[in-house]
Amino acid sequence: MTQKTILSEMPNGTGRVQRQVVLPFLKSVEISFQSIKVRFFRSLITTMSLVLAVSFLSFINVSNDIANGMLATHDPDLRQSLIRSGYDIGAQDISVGSSAKQRWIVILSLLVCVVGIVNAQLMAVTERFREIGTMKCLGALDRFILRLFVLEAGMQGLAGAGIGALAGALFSLINAWLHFGTAAVRSISIANLLISIGIATGVGCLLSLLGVFYPALVAARMQPVEAMRVEH
């Protein structure tokens, strides 16, 4: 063992220790992916509310896309069947937007979803107190922990929102097909459909990140000694 002092190795001056403790980005992706994989069932529950809310959003948007597609065909029969099924279309309208009531319900469901995610993630942080504390004892900085949680939420968000958006779109298409027949499904503009799915996925990811922000902050700020105190 060398006799030189421990901290003399610690470089002095500006920007010194920043590069001393590191967690490469790829490694953090690997760790968070593994963490989701191992706790798959837990992640599934966290993601489930997101899947449902996003699929609802996607369903509403894609249904409007379909209605617009049907109107764009200028087929009076399709126009009549739309009005019969409850769409509020005036004589001159050539497109339908989402109604205020629809928007309100969608926003509400998304809010409920965020609360659900915050709740589930706070539970996850509590469950992982020991793991977080151990990592901190091994030299992890606050932002490593923050990054791990945000990455996990990002992955869960992308997967959950993607699945939700596709499921919502699919249900909407099946619904249109059952109600209006194949003509309705054929008349939809693919670009609009893709945009709707994309928006729903994006919103889902955003919500997932929004929901994890506070729990991740709680985790990152935790003192290692608190983590060790659990169960003592």
């Binding site: 593994q34 191992v38 020991r130 793991e131 901190k136 091994l138």
Partner: peptide, 27 residues
């Protein structure tokens, strides 16, 4: 020591062993 230096100290100069082992369960 600031937060970085403490983390550095914990990482490089001190090794911790706990009663409850504290092996990271997912690894």
């Amino acid at each position: 020591l600031d937060a970085y230096e403490l983390a550095w100290l914990r990482c490089r100069k001190i090794g911790y062993i706990f009663q409850t082992f504290n092996i990271i369960q997912v690894m």
